[in-house]
Simulated scan of single mutants.
Amino acid sequence: MPSDRNLPATTDQAMLLYVDSQFASPYAMSAFVALKEKGLSFDIEALDLGAGANQAPAYAALSLTRRVPTLVDGDFSLSESSAIAEYLDEVFPGPLLFPRHPRARARARQVQAWLRTDLGPLRQERSTEVVFYGPVSRPLSPAAFDASQKLIAVATKLLSHGGDHLFDQWSIADVDLALMLNRLILNGDEMSPRLARYAKAQWARPSVQHWVQQPRPAL
Rank of each mutant, 00 (worst) to 15 (best):
24 A>G: 14
12 D>H: 00
84 I>V: 15
26 P>K: 01
92 F>A: 05
59 Y>C: 13
175 V>P: 04
128 T>L: 08
86 E>N: 02
204 A>D: 14
136 V>W: 05
213 Q>C: 06
19 V>T: 15
51 A>D: 12
29 M>I: 13
59 Y>T: 13
141 S>N: 07
193 P>S: 15
79 S>V: 13
6 N>G: 04
20 D>I: 15
140 L>T: 04
201 A>T: 08
36 K>N: 12
158 L>H: 06
143 A>I: 08
126 R>D: 00
24 A>L: 14
178 A>L: 13
214 Q>Y: 08
145 F>C: 06
117 T>I: 07
184 L>D: 03
213 Q>I: 10
127 S>F: 00
32 F>C: 12
189 D>Y: 04
35 L>E: 12
197 R>P: 02
175 V>K: 12
42 F>V: 12
92 F>S: 14
105 R>H: 04
113 A>N: 03
215 P>T: 04
130 V>Y: 05
48 D>Y: 02
41 S>F: 00
148 S>L: 02
42 F>Q: 14
191 M>Q: 08
113 A>S: 13
23 F>T: 09
89 D>S: 10
94 G>W: 09
195 L>K: 03
6 N>D: 10
8 P>R: 09
152 I>H: 05
144 A>V: 00
156 T>R: 07
165 H>M: 02
45 E>D: 04
101 H>S: 13
38 K>A: 14
207 S>G: 13
194 R>G: 05
121 P>H: 01
168 D>T: 01
13 Q>N: 07
189 D>P: 00
101 H>R: 02
152 I>C: 06
202 Q>D: 11
158 L>I: 10
119 L>A: 07
64 L>I: 11
72 V>E: 08
157 K>M: 03
12 D>P: 00
193 P>K: 15
148 S>Q: 05
85 A>M: 09
141 S>A: 09
100 R>W: 01
171 S>N: 07
4 D>T: 11
99 P>F: 01
118 D>T: 08
88 L>Q: 12
123 R>A: 00
96 L>D: 04
164 D>I: 07
208 V>T: 12
65 T>G: 09
24 A>W: 02
112 Q>P: 00
52 G>L: 14
64 L>Q: 12
177 L>W: 05
58 A>E: 15
143 A>S: 03
75 D>V: 09
94 G>H: 01
66 R>N: 11
215 P>K: 13
73 D>A: 10
9 A>K: 03
173 A>N: 07
102 P>L: 05
57 P>A: 07
119 L>R: 01
149 Q>I: 08
162 G>C: 15
57 P>Y: 05
209 Q>V: 15
197 R>C: 14
126 R>Q: 06
26 P>I: 15
197 R>T: 15
29 M>N: 10
144 A>G: 00
29 M>E: 15
148 S>T: 03
194 R>F: 04
152 I>P: 06
29 M>K: 02
96 L>H: 03
73 D>Y: 10
176 D>L: 11
17 L>T: 13
41 S>I: 08
7 L>K: 13
142 P>N: 11
198 Y>S: 08
136 V>M: 07
149 Q>N: 12
65 T>Q: 11
134 G>K: 03
83 A>C: 06
65 T>S: 13
60 A>D: 01
55 Q>N: 05
66 R>E: 08
219 L>Y: 05
91 V>G: 04
169 Q>C: 10
97 L>T: 11
140 L>M: 03
99 P>G: 05
68 V>F: 08
139 P>M: 01
178 A>E: 11
215 P>C: 08
